[in-house]
Design a protein around this nucleic acid. Structure first.
Length: 415
DNA sequence: TCTGGGGTCCTAGGACCC
DNA sequence: TCTGGGGTCCTAGGACCC
C-alpha cells in the first residue's frame, strides 16, 4: 500500500486525565501525579506545565510552588490507569482495524495520507465513550507521526504532517525533539555537527552507519519518510518481566535486601504464571542511591536455568545466591530488582531429564497460592523467608481510591 | 530528610573456539 | 624462541521510551 501512512493516538496528560475522570471538579485546575515512593512528578496537567514544572522533577523540589497554586496531587495508581487504558484501546479498535498499541497511553494505526475523517472519528469516539482527551498525529513513518502528534497537541488535536513543507521545517527542528534522541545521543550528534533534523537528513548514510550504527541509519530513514520501524499489528509477546522498587530508606542490612529480592521474585513469578509462561533467565540487580558516594557500587548478575521454570521456590533459591554475591558489606543500597526473560510457553516446555522430586511437588503448589492470593488479596500467602514487617517498603500517601478495581471504592452516583 | 518503575534494543568487551 | 586472527557467544551495562 503506497499510500499507507501511520497515525499515532496519544492520550493527553494520561494519568492526570484518568484521575480527573473521577474528579471532574479538577478539570481546568492544576493536577500532578507522582511516581512510586511519591518521588517524582510523572504526569502534569496543562496548568502545571504552564507553571514551568518539568517532567520527572523530584516532588520535594517543587512542593512549595505546587502548594501555592493549590495543585491537587495524587500518588500513582497503575491498576486504575491500566483499566482506563484498556477501555481507550477497545474503543479505538472498534473505529479502526489496524492498531498497534505502543504503550499504556499510545497506539499507532494505519490510515491513508488524506484520511482526516478517520482520525477525527477515532478522537471523538474515545473522548465521548471513555472521557479521556486524545491527540492524533499522522505522517509517513512512526517517528514523524510522533512529531506530528506534538503539533496536534498544540492545535486542534489532529495533525497531518505536510511533507511538502517538511524539508523546510526540518531545518528548525532540533534532533533533541525527535523520538529516540535523548540527552546522550543529542550530545553525540552535536559532536559530529548534527544539530537539526535537516543536518541528519543531509548527512552521508555510510558515515551515519559508521558512527551511529543501525540506530542512526534507522533514524535517518524514518525522518525522511521511509518506514524503518515497521508497523506490526501482531502483538509481540512480552520478552521480560521486571519487578523492582526503591527502598523507603537506604540499607546495608543483607536480610532486608534479601527480603526485598524475595518479594520481587514472588511477584514476577506470579505475573509469569498468569502469562502461561516459564522463564529460563533471571537477573538480580542492586543499586545504591543515584545521588551519593556509592554511585558506582551497584551491579547485576544473571543465572540461567537448565530447564525453564515457573516455580517460585526454585527461583528464590537462585535469587538468594545471586543477591548474596552482589551485596558488598557497608554499601548503603537503595533499590533491588529482578528481571525474568527467556520465556517459553508453559504448554510447550520440554521436561528436563533430571527433575527434582521436591520441585515437581512444589510445582503443583503454585496455582494454589496464586488462587488464594487472588481471592484473599495480594501477598496473603507468600513463600520464602521474609521479615515480619518489610523494612524497605515505602508509602504512597496520596493515592486515589481504586474506583474501577475495588468494590469498596466504587463511586456512588446519586440521581 | 525526600530523586519511579517497567519495558525494549543495542553494544562493548571478555571468554572461548578453531 | 618466535607467538594469529576471526567468529561467536555471553554478560553487563547503557541508551532510550512511557
Amino acid at each position: 500500500m503506497k499510500d499507507s501512512w501511520i497515525g499515532l493516538l496519544d492520550c493527553n496528560n494520561f494519568f492526570v486525565s484518568c484521575e480527573r475522570l473521577f474528579r471532574p471538579d479538577l478539570v481546568g485546575k492544576p493536577v500532578v501525579v507522582l511516581s512510586g515512593n511519591d518521588g517524582c512528578i510523572v504526569a502534569r496537567s496543562q496548568e502545571v506545565k504552564d507553571m514551568g514544572v518539568p517532567m520527572g522533577v523530584p516532588y520535594f523540589q517543587v512542593k512549595d510552588i505546587l502548594k501555592k497554586d493549590e495543585t491537587t496531587t495524587f500518588s500513582s495508581h497503575f491498576a486504575l490507569y491500566r483499566d482506563i487504558s484498556r477501555r481507550v484501546f477497545t474503543v479505538m479498535r472498534e473505529e479502526v482495524d489496524l492498531v498497534q498499541q505502543y504503550s499504556v497511553d499510545e497506539a499507532f494505526f494505519l490510515c491513508g495520507s488524506t484520511d482526516s475523517g478517520l482520525a477525527e472519528q477515532i478522537k471523538v469516539a474515545v473522548e465521548k465513550r471513555v472521557g479521556i482527551p486524545v491527540s492524533v498525529g499522522i505522517a509517513p513513518s512512526k517517528t514523524l507521526a510522533k512529531y506530528a502528534n506534538t503539533h496536534a497537541k498544540q492545535g486542534s488535536g489532529v495533525h497531518f504532517l505536510d511533507m511538502e513543507n517538511w524539508s523546510q521545517e526540518s531545518k528548525n527542528v532540533p534532533l533533541s525533539r525527535i523520538w529516540g534522541v535523548g540527552g546522550q545521543l543529542e550530545i553525540r550528534y552535536k559532536q559530529h555537527g548534527l544539530v537539526t533534523v535537516a543536518d541528519l537528513l543531509r548527512a552521508e548514510t555510510s558515515r551515519i552507519q559508521q558512527v551511529f550504527g543501525v540506530h542512526g541509519v534507522r533514524l535517518q530513514q524514518e525522518l525522511s519518510g521511509q518506514q524503518a520501524l515497521p508497523f506490526t499489528q501482531a502483538r509481540e509477546p512480552q520478552k521480560s518481566i521486571m519487578s523492582s522498587r526503591s527502598f523507603g530508606k537506604e540499607t546495608t542490612d543483607p536480610a532486608v535486601i534479601q527480603d526485598a529480592a524475595a518479594y520481587h521474585t514472588r511477584h514476577a513469578l506470579e505475573d509469569l504464571r498468569s502469562m502461561q509462561s516459564k522463564t529460563s533467565i533471571i537477573r538480580v540487580s542492586v543499586r545504591p542511591s543515584r545521588h551519593g558516594d556509592y554511585l558506582l557500587r551497584g551491579g547485576s548478575k544473571e543465572a540461567v536455568f537448565a530447564a525453564p521454570t515457573d516455580n517460585t521456590i526454585e527461583v528464590l533459591k537462585v535469587v538468594q545466591k545471586l543477591t548474596a554475591s552482589l551485596i558488598e558489606p557497608g554499601v548503603p543500597y537503595k533499590k533491588v530488582g529482578v528481571v525474568l526473560s527467556g520465556f517459553t510457553s508453559s504448554e510447550t516446555v520440554q521436561q528436563s531429564l533430571f527433575v527434582d522430586e521436591a520441585v515437581l511437588k512444589s510445582d503443583a503448589l503454585m496455582p494454589v497460592i496464586d488462587l488464594l492470593n487472588q481471592r484473599l488479596g495480594r501477598d496473603v500467602v507468600t513463600l520464602g523467608s521474609h521479615l515480619k514487617t518489610p523494612q524497605w517498603q515505602s508509602l504512597s500517601e496520596l493515592k486515589s481510591p481504586a474506583y474501577t478495581t475495588q468494590w469498596q471504592d466504587l463511586k456512588t452516583v446519586v440521581a
